[in-house]
Design a protein around this nucleic acid. Structure first.
Lengths: 236, 236
DNA sequence: TTCACACGTCAATAGCGTTGACGTAAGGTC
DNA sequence: GACCTTACGTCAACGCTATTGACGTGTGAA
């Protein structure tokens, strides 16, 4: 087959579809995000996206090689939204904390899309900028390259992993969410100290703590540990 | 439709398929695991599983309501295998490290199933035992209840989140996996120091480090930080 | 005003999970 | 050993999916 995709920069002939929509990479990505937000991740198919755009499904293949490329574009859009309006302060700890919480927050605010996106390497502009930023924060704070890279990897993976995990919980059908909550009350709440002494002893604390995300505390622990590893000279 | 599934206990008429296989829930789960192990996650479809069993695909619906039920059965099998043959040593750090790496490893060994299981609260015996064990390790090491609970939450969520994240990468269709690898080589490898100085400066280190999972280092960082938080008296 | 071709459309393919209908043979009973 | 019930394997079909080759219209450049 001949390559149908025309790179975004080269587009010129913006021909409207039968139903009058004028397509663009941007419009497609935004429509996809809306579709997911409104009708759940399973609502995203080429056919339905085509319908939502008012275009033949196969028109999408003029903009993306396949659905994988489309998902990567959606993922990158989320990364971009997380970074919007943020600039480094020069304090590595505050900066990493802010970036971590922003990624986590952005993915949580669009859980259905986050689930599809959180584990891909997009190689797109927004992702590249995020990588550059985090590496820059570490290196400019005085971390030697080898350590900076290892910390970068652990930090980014942890942010994405928790984001996906929490997004998955939020994206659960509400019936399943209810069922999970009930498991906590009905199963863990009824365990006795004969068989499960530690759960029985801490249940109220446990139930309260498990209500929220474990990420903020996990992030703080990571920052503590990284601070301890940092060469002392020029701490900031 | 009438319910076709007969509960495992009630089965009696073990009629062989045309090709001579005698089906059972156990055989189906094991065949599914083998299929994934040998031919990758994308090889698991009802039709292919039927073929591997030497049975009509629709015969599976006599054993599982749908593919989701099948995947949960596979996941449950994995949880069982993960805990097999481990006992606490009495050293909290070593114990937590072992538990974390075991969860992570077991989920990675069957990514497809792990993805379904990682973000559900099952309330099943295996899960309950794991919760009790981790809490016990922390409390018996002398962590006060409030801290033990917060550390438990961060630790377990981190293990599950990374496990799911890495499983997701492994479960990717091999075409997508290939695409991600190529992004690293072709996109990040070509960035220059004009636009992305930090990536350009550390690319070889970065590419090497990103090849593996970020979890072991992230886990070590968490254990470092937790050790620093631990009341000093009775460290072990 | 002309002309090339970008791009939206159509039709078709091969795969997927799932279900209703059907008949065979297995197991219990006598 | 004969009979009856029905579990369960099989078949065929449905509606869904992503993807692709062919086609022709109308846009934007020259």
């Amino acid at each position: 087959m001949v390559e149908r995709v025309v790179p975004e920069g080269k587009r010129q002939r913006r021909r409207p579809t039968k139903q009058g929509a004028v397509l663009s990479e941007r419009l497609i990505v935004e429509t996809a995000l809306n579709l997911i937000a409104q009708h759940g991740a399973e609502a995203l198919s080429v056919r339905r996206l085509g319908a939502a755009l008012g275009a033949d499904p196969s028109a999408l293949y003029r903009y993306f090689r396949n659905t994988d490329a489309l998902m990567l574009a959606v993922a990158d859009e989320l990364i971009g939204r997380a970074q919007q309006g943020w600039a480094p302060t020069g304090y590595w700890r505050a900066d990493l904390r802010a970036i971590g919480l922003r990624i986590h927050g952005s993915y949580r605010s669009n859980p259905q899309a986050a689930l599809l996106a959180a584990h891909r390497t997009t190689g797109r502009p927004h992702e590249m900028r995020a990588v550059e930023t985090v590496l820059g924060v570490l290196r400019e704070a005085g971390f030697p390259d080898g350590l900076a890279v290892r910390v970068y990897h652990a930090f980014v993976d942890q942010a994405l992993a928790f984001a996906a995990q929490d997004a998955a919980t939020l994206a659960l059908p509400s019936a399943a969410k209810e069922a999970d909550a009930e498991v906590w009350r009905e199963v863990y709440g009824r365990l006795t100290s004969d068989t499960h002494p530690h759960i029985a002893a801490t249940f109220p604390l446990l139930a309260a703590d498990m209500r929220g995300s474990g990420y903020p505390f996990a992030l703080e622990l990571m920052l503590d540990a990284v601070a301890a590893l940092k060469p002392v000279a020029d701490a900031r």
